[in-house]
């Protein structure tokens, strides 16, 4: 502890003139979000197996449905009257659901921890970084992560012969849109959370969405009133979007689904950046 008293004395930690230090241009120009990505890269570089392992969960679901329930159900009739193999019907829904789950988890639990306990953002904000940099950086990170999972899942789907149309490639950007919409709203919700108990609410919302967004069976199975309610589920729009692409059943409805998700992401981002400012800079 005692150390060498002169070791530090000779070090010029502070340059002599104040004027000599120009403010680093890139940060002020808004490259801050990229620094956020660098930070997350440094963290996850060490725990990459965790990232890899996130890929298995939807695959397990896919296998379980392919081997088990698919064999029990056989084919299902979709909206345009076509018969579709059950596994091919559910796979795109699982892709949409895992995009939702990943985005929600990252934007709620992880962000809450950093906000309240890790105080990571407090430290960052004592530098030239802005709250906007943090918000954009974090959402971009979780989207990037989602993109990796989605690509892997789509490859597995293709290998299992579950992609029936070349439009299927558009499933990839579609997962990005779903991830963006949910991450933005998840983060917005997190800025209102006070304790871990509030996260019970997150589960209470995510589970019904997962189960009732025409994920496991066509909308026609639901009673009429349920069908209307389901249209309010953001995951439903995500599921329909991806399913249309992988099954090749395109229609004008797609624009409606896209518009819904874009609007949701926009509102979430707006609330998030306003609330973060209030929370962190008070």
């Amino acid at each position: 502890m005692a150390g060498n008293p002169d070791a530090a004395g000779t070090v010029d930690l502070v340059s002599s003139t104040l004027a000599a230090r120009a403010v680093p241009a890139p940060v002020l120009a808004g490259g801050g979000a990229v620094r956020m990505l660098e930070r997350n890269y440094l963290v996850y570089r060490r725990i990459w197996p965790v990232i890899i392992s996130g890929f298995f969960e939807p695959i397990f679901y896919l296998f379980s449905i392919g081997i088990g329930i698919g064999a029990l159900v056989g084919d299902v009739t979709i909206a345009n009257g076509e018969l579709v193999d059950y596994t091919a019907f559910v796979a795109p829904a699982l892709l949409a659901a895992s995009a939702m789950n990943g985005a929600v988890f990252e934007s709620t639990f992880n962000i809450f921890f950093k906000l309240k306990y890790g105080k990571v953002y407090d430290a960052i904000l004592s530098t030239p970084m802005k709250t906007r940099d943090i918000a954009i950086g974090e959402i971009a990170w979780s989207l990037g992560r989602g993109l990796i999972y989605a690509s892997a899942f789509i490859l597995v789907m293709a290998a299992m012969g579950l992609i029936e149309s070349p439009w299927g490639i558009l499933a990839l950007p579609a997962t990005l849109l779903i991830g963006f919409a949910f991450a933005a709203c998840g983060m917005a919700a997190t800025t209102f959370m006070n304790s871990w108990q509030d996260f019970d609410l997150v589960n209470l919302i995510v589970l019904p969405l997962f189960l009732f967004s025409a994920t496991f069976y066509p909308l026609s199975v639901y009673p009429d009133i349920f069908q209307t309610l389901t249209q309010l589920s953001p995951l439903y729009h995500g599921v329909q979007l991806i399913r249309s692409f992988t099954l090749g059943t395109l229609s004008i409805d797609l624009f409606g689904h896209i518009a819904f998700l874009v609007a949701m992401g926009g509102v979430g981002s707006y609330i998030t950046s306003r609330r973060l400012e209030k929370l962190l800079l008070s």
Binding site: R21, V23, K119, V120, L125, S126, P128, K130
Partner: peptide
């Protein structure tokens, strides 16, 4: 941001 670029901050709790 310009001010913070020239400050060093050591908060009460190590963050």
């Amino acid at each position: 941001p310009k001010i913070r670029a020239r400050l060093g901050v050591v908060p009460q709790e190590d963050n």
